[in-house]
Design a protein around this nucleic acid. Structure first.
Length: 294
DNA sequence: GAGGGCCTGAAG
DNA sequence: CTTCAGGCCCTC
């Protein structure tokens, strides 16, 4: 579910409630969602700790526990982290509950159970994905010159690279499609064939799309809610994602959905023409992706 | 680089 | 019933 803008919204809504709070109790209702250490050590190591700050790295949330280390949470497709002033009747799909020293509680809720939690010591490395994150467009922006060097020679579709968290941190399926639309680039374009100009447009588009989504507190399609249980307001601003069959807001063409890099992919075929169809003197057949070079 | 697996729920 | 879903990881 949540991409960078949604996780950032969760971070912002949790920060005032959690900062400075002591963790009084830890209940683990689904042990296999605890990735490290084993659930009993997790519980014992977390209880009695204190939250010094709430950080985000890409799509990971990080509770800084001071000398006790940090609690890392990944929400994956369907996870939520929700704070409540008073313990509430166990919401469905609640997996972990932290009781805080002001009587409030923090619940990790996850219908599909794909999410994960790691309790790390102060010097302990986190999961691989966390240690290999690329630049964060929300926090730092994107370096187009770096992208140009990284994309050179790559035959992967540009969308696959946008979804690679080691290339850009926090971009997911929604904002990859939205950024490619804003940059007028077909998602299946081989990354190595993009010129300096389109790459610059794409870098700016990723920053703009992600920051605008944060300003609207994220996109709620199904289950996403922020740290106070509120849905995001960016949905009505989406240009292509989830708009299959509707007309392009810029040119009126019907939005189509295809599969790229194994993911459902939305685009406007007029605003984002296929690069191989535009090649002069080459039929679409002979230059289609996967076709052998003449 | 593509494809499948992980899980569950919702939609077609 | 089948297919699909805001993600990531592992295998061919």
């Amino acid at each position: 579910m949540p991409e960078g803008p949604e996780v950032e919204t969760v971070r912002r809504t949790l920060e005032p409630h959690l900062t400075g709070r002591g963790i009084r109790s830890v209940r683990v209702l689904l042990p296999r969602i605890i990735r490290r250490p084993d659930p009993e050590d997790f519980r014992a190591g977390l209880a009695g700790g204190r939250v010094h700050g709430v950080l985000r790295r890409g799509k990971y949330l990080v509770l800084d526990l001071g000398e006790r280390g940090r609690l890392v949470v990944h929400l994956m497709m369907s996870g939520q982290l929700v704070w409540a002033a008073r313990p509430e009747a166990a919401a469905e799909h609640t997996r972990v509950v932290l009781g805080l020293d002001d009587g409030s509680e923090l619940r990790m809720v996850d219908a599909r159970t794909l999410g994960g939690l790691w309790l790390l010591g102060p010097e302990e490395a986190g999961p691989r994905g966390l240690e290999r994150l690329g630049a964060d467009p929300i926090a730092e922006g994107v370096d187009a010159a770096l992208w140009r060097r990284r994309f050179a020679g790559r035959r992967a579709p540009i969308k696959a690279l946008l979804l690679d968290q080691a290339v850009v941190a926090g971009v997911g399926n929604i904002y990859a499609d939205e950024a490619l639309f804003a940059a007028r680039i077909h998602p299946a374009t081989e990354a190595g064939r993009l010129g300096a100009d389109p790459i610059e447009r794409l870098a700016r588009a990723v920053e703009d799309v992600m920051r605008e989504a944060v300003a609207h507190r994220g996109t709620t399609l199904r289950s996403y809610a922020d740290g106070e249980g509120q849905p995001g307001g960016h949905g009505p601003h989406l240009m292509v994602y989830g708009r299959t069959g509707q007309s392009c807001r810029l040119c009126g063409e019907s939005i189509v959905k295809i599969k790229v890099a194994g993911r459902g992919t939305h685009l406007c075929s007029r605003c984002q023409p296929s690069p191989w169809q535009e090649l002069p003197g080459a039929g679409a057949e002979s230059r289609a992706p996967g076709a052998k070079r003449p």
